[in-house]
């Protein structure tokens, strides 16, 4: 069950999207998100959808993988849709019962919201699917580096991010092991009543926290043994270089964004 978590998963391949400069990819993703939320009509949403589709096709990552990243957010999607559907007041009324009424506006808004969120998830998954966590944090560090002037701890932040990402799979594996061990002692974890299950969560969380702290301690020692002393004077193995294709991708994205803004103004 824990193996289904796909957040932060990276699929090493060699598509155009994979080869893009990660700094550009982050900026492009940000523009994409703004584009999604500025578009106010279905046409704008359609343009964003076309844009997402092209990017997904270019990445050559299977569509199934994107479905997998949407799945865990399904309940959230449904709740948003249902709330919009039931409590959106205006427009033609189709159904009325006490304080609940379903209107044409309600239907429109809920469909709109679902598509918008699905596109949002797909677009942002594309970023993590095609960029390895290490390059991603590298890019974040470089993008934020101007903030260093204001004493903002950019390198420390990036290091924390990469350590956190690095330990996700380790901790998942650890959790699996602890769950098995407690089940072997007869703890009810995926069976039994809800109160029992909640009580038994303690038997998983405490060992997990202890091991996380232990790992953090060991890692800190190991880093110090290798004379780690922050970002000052560190050189890097992979230098980020922007190429023509990065500028092309950025221009195309901006073009789409401008289209959405124009459509917003004129329709």
């Amino acid at each position: 069950m824990l193996k289904d978590i796909t957040i932060g998963q990276y699929f090493p391949m060699n598509s155009v999207i994979h080869r893009l400069d990660p700094r550009f990819k982050i900026v492009i993703t940000l523009i994409f998100i703004v584009m999604l939320f500025t578009g106010e009509s279905f046409i704008c949403l359609g343009i964003s959808a076309v844009y997402t589709l092209i990017a997904v096709l270019l990445s050559r990552i299977k569509f199934k993988m994107f479905m997998k990243s949407i799945k865990p957010l399904m309940p959230f999607l449904l709740i948003t849709a249902v709330l919009n559907l039931l409590f959106m007041g205006d427009g033609e009324v189709y159904f009325h019962w006490k304080f609940i009424k379903i209107t044409s506006d309600g239907i429109n808004v809920s469909v709109f919201m679902i598509i918008r969120i699905v596109l949002l998830i797909m677009g942002s998954s594309l970023l993590t699917y095609t960029t390895s966590p290490i390059t991603l944090t590298d890019a974040v560090e470089r993008l934020l580096s101007p903030l260093k002037r204001f004493k903002f701890p950019v390198h420390e932040l990036a290091m924390m991010m990469s350590i956190a990402l690095r330990f996700i799979p380790t901790l998942i594996e650890e959790t699996d092991k602890i769950i098995s061990a407690q089940k072997a002692r007869g703890a009810e974890i995926d069976t039994g009543s809800i109160t029992n299950r909640a009580k038994n969560m303690v038997s998983i969380l405490i060992p997990l926290f202890i091991s996380a702290f232990r790992r953090a301690d060991e890692l800190a020692t190991a880093m110090e043994c290798r004379c780690y002393n922050g970002g000052e004077g560190r050189t890097r193995l992979r230098q980020l270089k922007s190429k023509l294709r990065d500028y092309t991708a950025l221009s195309v994205t901006i073009l789409f964004f401008v289209c959405v803004i124009l459509l917003n103004i004129f329709i």
Binding site: A181, A184, R185, G186, V202, S211
Partner: peptide, 30 residues
């Protein structure tokens, strides 16, 4: 699982109770 007891590798990492007594008792309690 009560008839076939399994002790995993590095079983000390599964300990969670406040006292040794309670931790040994965990399986019996279950």
């Amino acid at each position: 699982r009560f008839k076939v007891g399994l002790v995993f590798q590095y079983p000390e990492y599964q300990i969670f109770e406040e006292t040794v007594y309670k931790d040994i008792a965990f399986g019996c309690k279950n």
